[in-house]
Design a protein around this nucleic acid. Structure first.
Lengths: 127, 127
DNA sequence: AAAGTGTATATAATGCATATACACAATAAT
DNA sequence: ATTATTGTGTATATGCATTATATACACTTT
């Protein structure tokens, strides 16, 4: 399981795990029925507490993406891919809104923002 | 002093105050030497604690934007407007980076993002 | 003296992350 | 088959940092 944790970003660890697992499901790297790494194993790999992985899996279960059964493990559920895309777009929208709020306060123009966005996107694309 | 506090955004109150005062300074609505509303008065207007306004003013003072003297009040300092613009752009950049991170995980294209950004900007511009 | 400033101390509520112990299931050893 | 072991998910109590607060203090002006 290729999950990368960044402590610098300010994003909670459990949220980073959630995002990346959701992305794997959406992109077909994980399919319905597939077993996720156990909470303990993932915690060991990432050198974090079991409770943090549990928190991530718990949220994913609450949102209907996975299912956990005691003694056996955690598994990907069958999911409406459209709904996932929607929720992903919504999260992006929230970030953009914050950026726009600041831009308007600072009298930064839309074209300036478009330029910044483009540069950042091209940078991040090749990582 | 036209400061608007939003509890829904998740942004700390003191941070919202800081951003908006910085913006007023940068846009010339406040000039060097101008008196800010007293911590108590602002707290009363916004219906928050004095300690929260103090926290905001404290940060602004630490960053060199204002000056507080006990018994008298808080006042705008002379500031390098270029540096302010820089820090404002940096904050916007951080937000855009988070959005791009999500977009790449979700295989959302740059042009999709540009479209979203444009819509959000035009919406917010008229508020 | 009174009313206006900024300041300091102690406190509460929330969110993130943890260690440790518990309960259940599958497997290996006897 | 029975039991011990190992591997699952789960629950409780705790530490720490951040946000926001009430209350009392110290200084300046009027």
């Amino acid at each position: 399981m290729d999950i990368i944790i960044s402590n610098a970003s300010g994003v909670p660890i459990y949220e980073q795990i959630e995002e990346q697992i959701k992305s794997m499901i959406m992109n077909g790297d994980l399919s319905a029925g597939d077993a996720l790494p156990s909470m303990r194993l993932l915690a060991k790999e990432l050198r974090i507490s079991v409770i943090t992985t549990k928190r991530a899996y718990e949220d994913l279960e609450r949102d209907g993406f996975i299912e956990s059964v005691v003694g056996k493990g955690s598994f990907v559920k069958g999911i409406n891919s459209e709904i996932m895309k929607e929720s992903m777009l919504f999260a992006i929208e929230e970030c953009l809104e914050k950026a726009v709020d600041k831009a308007i306060l600072g009298k930064v123009s839309l074209s300036e923002m478009q330029e910044m966005l483009s540069i950042i996107y091209e940078e991040k694309k090749n990582e």
